[in-house]
């Protein structure tokens, strides 16, 4: 029973990480109909830069703004170099372009931080707390709270500020948003900055729980896409439920089957959802126009 609770907690923490990355996919998909296939690299960059800054200044909390900024810069770069030219040409070249930018980023990260996985110092005690009889890592609680706080902050910004409403308007109808005087190109750039900042933030959240390295992001990025699909690319908070489903499925598989198989349930779920309910469990199906 205690074991079960413990797995539950780890699953939820992991699920929240997926939710944050998936949330980032939703942001860019809403405004531009595109998403960053190199999102996992944004996460790795966040974790690695965080690691270097923590080494320098010794404070985990102060690194967060630096990491968010780094993620945002990466996002702007991806949008300018990979997405905007393709959107202009109305081609799907952005898929290959964002993959390529991800590969380049990963390579640069390998050259700076090396190919080996590094240990990220935990900002809080690594001794487990005892909650309801289960031992829970304090960092897991930080992950859950941090992830929810980030998503909540972005949602609040989107709902309350006029700029957030401009994002929602661009998402709903890019052309009509232009007629409202909204510079939709800028909004798309901004959504990429926000999306990659979220991924980078997820990077420093998860880093103390796992190891940090240039290749830590690829699998996370792909599974977060599964979460975005399960939750629906258009449904705001579906990602939290999607993240929970996947996080729990994964930790349980890892515990009861084999850690080698832990990536499988998410990917199989992705295939199944797309084969049978492509709009996601919480998304709406669009009417096709002829």
């Amino acid at each position: 029973m205690d074991m079960l609770l413990q797995i539950l907690f780890s699953g939820i923490a992991l699920g929240m990480i997926y939710a944050v990355i998936a949330f980032g996919y939703q942001l860019t998909f809403a405004t531009s109909g595109t998403l960053n296939f190199g999102q996992g690299e944004a996460l790795a960059i966040g974790a690695l830069i965080g690691l270097s800054v923590v080494d320098r200044i010794g404070n985990y909390w102060l690194t967060i703004p630096v990491v968010l900024l780094a993620g945002a810069i990466y996002g702007i770069g991806v949008e300018r170099l990979g997405v905007r030219p393709a959107l202009k040409a109305k081609s799907e070249g952005w898929i290959m372009a964002t993959i390529a930018l991800g590969i380049i980023m990963k390579n640069i990260a390998e050259n700076i931080w090396g190919r080996d996985d590094l240990k990220f110092p935990s900002p809080v005690s690594e001794a487990p707390l005892h909650l309801f009889g289960a031992s829970v890592l304090p960092m897991e609680i930080i992950v859950i709270v941090g992830a929810l706080a980030l998503m909540l902050a972005v949602e609040l910004f989107n709902r309350k500020s006029i700029y957030g409403k401009a994002i929602a308007a661009t998402a709903a109808d890019r052309e009509a948003a232009g007629l409202m005087g909204i510079n939709t190109g800028q909004v798309i750039t901004f959504s990429y900055a926000l999306s990659c900042a979220a991924a980078a933030f997820a990077g420093i959240l998860i880093a103390p729980l796992t190891l940090t390295g240039a290749s830590m992001g690829a699998a996370l990025g792909l599974k977060a896409f599964a979460v975005a699909i399960i939750g629906g690319l258009t449904s705001g908070l579906g990602v939290i439920i999607g993240g929970l489903i996947l996080g729990l499925a994964e930790t349980f598989t890892g515990f009861y089957l084999s850690t080698g198989y832990k990536d499988v349930p998410g990917l199989v779920l992705l295939l199944l959802v797309l084969a049978f309910k492509p709009a996601g469990l919480f998304g709406k199906t669009a009417i096709k126009k002829v």
Partner: peptide
């Protein structure tokens, strides 16, 4: 109009 925003939000936009 922006269907999933409120009437007031539409006007503010």
């Amino acid at each position: 109009i922006f269907a999933n925003l409120s009437v007031t939000d539409n006007l503010l936009l």
